[in-house]
Design a protein around this nucleic acid. Sequence first.
DNA 1: GTTTCAATCTCGTTG
DNA 2: CAACGAGGTTGAAAC
Lengths: 250, 250
Amino acid sequence: MLLKIEHNPTNLEATELINEAISKRAFMILVVCCKVNYEGRATSKLGFGERTVLIKGDGSFIIHQDRNLEPINWQPPRTKIGVKLEDDVIKIMGKRRKPKEQLELVIRNVHLISYHLGSDTKDIELAGYEEDMRQMIMDNPELIEKGFRPTSKEYQTPQGFIDILGKDDAGKLVVLELKSRKAGVNAVKQLLRYVDCFSDNKEFVRGILVSPSITEEAKEILNEYQMEHISLSPPKELKVKSSTTLDYFF
Amino acid sequence: MLLKIEHNPTNLEATELINEAISKRAFMILVVCCKVNYEGRATSKLGFGERTVLIKGDGSFIIHQDRNLEPINWQPPRTKIGVKLEDDVIKIMGKRRKPKEQLELVIRNVHLISYHLGSDTKDIELAGYEEDMRQMIMDNPELIEKGFRPTSKEYQTPQGFIDILGKDDAGKLVVLELKSRKAGVNAVKQLLRYVDCFSDNKEFVRGILVSPSITEEAKEILNEYQMEHISLSPPKELKVKSSTTLDYFF
DNA sequence: GTTTCAATCTCGTTG
DNA sequence: CAACGAGGTTGAAAC
């Protein structure tokens, strides 16, 4: 894999390398003393300090401080990246239209610059989501209860899509609301709104919240409206998430 | 600033440097050929490929592919990081309890390893949030309309907190729902639910959605229920967000 | 500690 | 292209 590194380059040398990296759409890594200005969806200013910067070939622009998981400033993919040297200060601009926004990185001093090329076409396999849960229940309706028969998934109502709609052993309508994590009051309210969509029915409609667990307050509201909770966790068997893997690169 | 770099080290050399970086709580940058396994809140596997890895002194563990803003795998601050060399393969483990989860990075080959120390205590200043908008309206109620008087902010209802509640020139009750960005149907539904909380009132209650813009469908629902929209953007004057700046490091 | 909610959310999918 | 919803959401504030 091609990889260029420079330790403590001059700002002139660094500017040239940054230009190279941009034109090659490389993955660039910088450790610099810099300040940062952002203007767009919000506004921010960050004074001078040591930061680690990633600029990807797709236009992602990521600025990390030395703590926290999240970057302190960033721009999403497809950002236009430009660089210029002015009065021995390097300015890297990331501009985007729609939304109109711009990130300005003012570099006083470069400690490390590196860039490399190399595509990574592997897709991640993952599991443990609401969609996996939905599929699991469609495949094994008895996980809800004996005699449960799903009639449709993502049934549309004025309030949005019902995760799973079905009928129980006695033929009563059952609305399922799925959550892959601990469910709170919002999940219960949503379920209630779905059930209310059938309030013109003569028959009582059952509302069941399906999630690994539930908050205490959510449980109270469920009881209040005679709705139920079933404890069920999403499956964690792995499957390929995206089908567009381009494995012929390997 | 102390900064160590090694280009294409052996896996033995790399393991030693990784150990050094961990024990010094340094900011480590790796460009490696690796695979990644995650087990915890969900499960994921990522096959071998070229990845860029950041490990911060606070325990943040971030793995980037060559596209997208977001890391493909990660662990938050306070993750315990460990490394071992087994059969000439480097394994970096990031473990956390509560939630119990673990990230395993299996490195076949190191292209670049670097670590550096240096604290960055500057706080960012930013603006443009819903909270700023709320404050702006409380300070200048005439932004809504002449004669508007806020009576309370974050007024509690069974449906949640109303952003701002007030009265208009004619003494009619007005419910404001604020959004710092383009508002969609969910914002309108939320406003409608708040207004419904006063449906036992004799008088008509006005519902006003305040946001920079609004989706077409949201506008239709607003009209349907005789609610209003006011176009207003959050202010963007800067202020220091965190008050815990430790500037005496500088 | 747990719960709730905004976010420069991001990212995918769908119409 | 805009809109909608899930996320290992994260992160902060409120309780």
